Computed example of a mutant assay.
Amino acid sequence: MLHKLETLLTWAVLFGILIFIHELGHFLAAKAFKFKVYEFAFGLPFGKKWRYWYDGETEYTVRAVLLGGFVGFAEAEADDETRDRQMADFHAKPIYQRLIVILAGPIASFLLGWIAFVALVGMRGVELPAPHKMMVSEKSAAAEAGIRTGDLLVKIAGESIADFNAMAAKVRGSAGKPLEIEIRRDEKPLTLTVQPREVPEGREKLYRIGVGLQPRTRPAQIQEVLGEANRLTGTFLSALGKLVSTPRELGKNIGGPIAIAGAVSEVVKLDWADRVLALFSLMGQLSLSLYAANLFVPIPVFDGGQVVLLLIEAIRRRQLSKEQQMGVALVGWALVLVLFVSVTFNDILKLLGKG
């Protein structure tokens, strides 16, 4: 029960930070261009709201449906005539100003992701080359063979091991036969024999020894921190791009709130030092995912969809009619609902082992 509560609180704080920073980007850009902002909210613009501050122009609120946030350029509860007048003031602003306000949210998410990686590298330091520290699961094949967490992995079956993938490949290639593993403990060499265990996974025979690898590190200089943060950001966005270009892989890997909660649950199991590093890593990945989804998914209620509508307005030299705007909004929310249900269903299938 304590673990579940800790997971829920950690998930809520993480989700809240992601939403707050994204909407803060929109809000600050809007204020810079003197847009009138009626509401800055946690939650979607439906149901009951609770005001926690009012500065004379903007209400700062929490909404009942806590699945996002928004910056309101019209009063959500106002009558149609009032809302039309307030939105007319918004649309009267130059297109370039509205475009900057829309893009400011994804930009804020991108910066949060990058800053999270900067913090991660700054605390973790620069990785040193192999050998790496071994993280050994309790009652695993490696633990039974006498390997301890903190031992340095040197070789498996006479071959040097550079990273986790190389180790996993050697274990898979063992076909279940005993492996000689050379380690270093307290600067002394030691060779132990480990019997890999078969792990059923579909029709394939997979083998595990219950070991993870943690690279050794040294304190990083500022240029190394920035360079590694840039590399991590680029690598993650590149991986996202490859997923999007292969729909089959995207379907397997896309996750929603349940998948994120599962990841948070694993993070909460770590000790505090590793937990902080893992949370910054997860925050960086989620914030960059929020940046990419909002900017490059052209659903009308997402920022990317709003950019498309602005470009259409610029080409037509006039706005969509009120009826057209309402139709676009309804289609947008319907697509968001379908997307939310799809990723949640996908999460449930994975939990049941069918994804």
Rank of each mutant, 00 (worst) to 15 (best):
I19N: 04
D186H: 09
M167P: 00
E138D: 15
A220F: 06
L240W: 01
V301C: 04
A143T: 11
K177M: 10
I183E: 01
G234R: 15
K36S: 06
V297W: 10
S137M: 14
L277I: 08
E313I: 04
I348E: 02
A32D: 03
S245F: 10
K242S: 15
E182W: 13
D347F: 01
L179Y: 05
L352F: 13
G202P: 10
P189G: 07
V225L: 04
G176R: 12
W50Q: 12
A263F: 12
E39L: 07
I299E: 00
A32G: 07
V194Y: 00
L206F: 15
I260W: 09
V126L: 14
W333G: 01
H26T: 10
E266S: 13
H132N: 03
D274A: 15
P94H: 08
A278S: 15
R275A: 13
K252V: 12
F40T: 09
A142V: 11
P257V: 12
L240E: 06
L44S: 06
V276Q: 07
L309I: 14
K31N: 08
M167I: 08
A104D: 00
G176L: 07
E81I: 10
R317Y: 11
A108I: 03
P219L: 09
F117S: 01
N230Q: 12
K170A: 15
L153G: 00
G212P: 04
E81P: 01
N165A: 12
S265T: 11
I254E: 03
I156T: 08
A32K: 15
A157T: 11
I19L: 11
G113L: 01
L335T: 11
A30H: 02
E198V: 00
E77C: 01
L9V: 15
T10H: 09
L128W: 14
D274Y: 08
I17Q: 03
G327C: 09
V121R: 04
A92C: 11
W333N: 08
K170D: 07
A292T: 14
A78W: 05
V307M: 05
G105N: 01
T82V: 12
F110Q: 03
R316T: 10
S265W: 07
G305N: 06
